[in-house]
């Protein structure tokens, strides 16, 4: 039996075990899932080890030219292990600070240069057509929906202004359509995955049965 067949058989079994979740939570599903988590995490660690830690941290240790730049991350990396103990976990704070600082900057940079400004520009640029006008209106209304600030009414209820409420209501319609389209997209992806899984099972069964 070839590697591929064994792989397919294991895949089939695991697929069925996972599908058993359609009935409800059960040991088969658990078994498949825990096995999957173990293997997937192990594989991820393997890749990270070989793709990140070895070439960027360990290899430079043997290279005097890059050693200086590696000492800092090395020390920080070692300190990170303090996170395994609540008592000394603060020692790992420096390493986490670098990650968070860089991460925050990356998030900001991505949000600004990747989404905010390009999307605003695109909304402005597309205004010259009827579709563009709808797009712009929809974008504005969608944004208006999220207005958080409100006022406390005399009856102690918290409401936004009437105009904003109206805009927000219209914005909800756009959001509803958007989410509907995206939901349909997710469904189509899931459906394709289901078809692929069923196909692999049926094809394997067919091949095993010689059909």
């Amino acid at each position: 039996m070839s590697f591929e067949v064994v792989s397919a058989v294991i895949g089939l079994l695991l697929t069925l075990m996972v599908f058993s979740y359609l009935i409800g939570d059960n040991p088969l599903f658990r078994l498949a899932v825990y096995l999957f988590i173990g293997v997937a995490s192990g594989y991820a660690v393997t890749v990270i080890w070989h793709s990140v830690l070895v070439p960027r941290l360990l290899d430079p240790l043997g290279n005097p030219n890059r050693l200086a730049w590696t000492v800092v991350p090395l020390i920080l990396s070692i300190s990170l292990w303090a996170k395994l103990s609540p008592r000394i976990s603060r020692l790992g704070g420096f390493a986490m600070a670098v990650i968070v600082g860089v991460g925050a900057a990356t998030a900001i940079g991505g949000a600004l240069t990747g989404t905010l400004i390009p999307q605003v520009e695109a909304a402005m640029d597309s205004f010259d057509s009827s579709e563009g006008a709808v797009m712009l209106a929809g974008t504005v209304l969608t944004l208006a929906y999220f207005q958080f600030g409100a006022k406390r009414a005399p009856d102690d209820t918290i409401k936004r202004g009437a105009v904003i409420e109206l805009l927000a209501w219209l914005g909800r319609l756009f959001i509803a359509v958007t989410l509907g389209v995206l939901f349909a997209g997710v469904y189509l992806s899931a459906l394709t995955a289901l078809i692929e899984r069923l196909s692999s099972i049926i094809n394997l069964v067919k091949s095993l049965l010689g059909l």
Binding site: I175, V181, L182
Partner: peptide
């Protein structure tokens, strides 16, 4: 749906970007 969802998605993305920007700023 393409037009409407495109508009909505743009609004949502801008909103999320705004939230991300402010969250990042709070950290920085």
């Amino acid at each position: 749906t393409g037009v409407v969802s495109g508009a909505g998605a743009r609004g949502l993305l801008i909103g999320v970007a705004l939230g991300t920007l402010l969250t990042g700023l709070r950290v920085l």
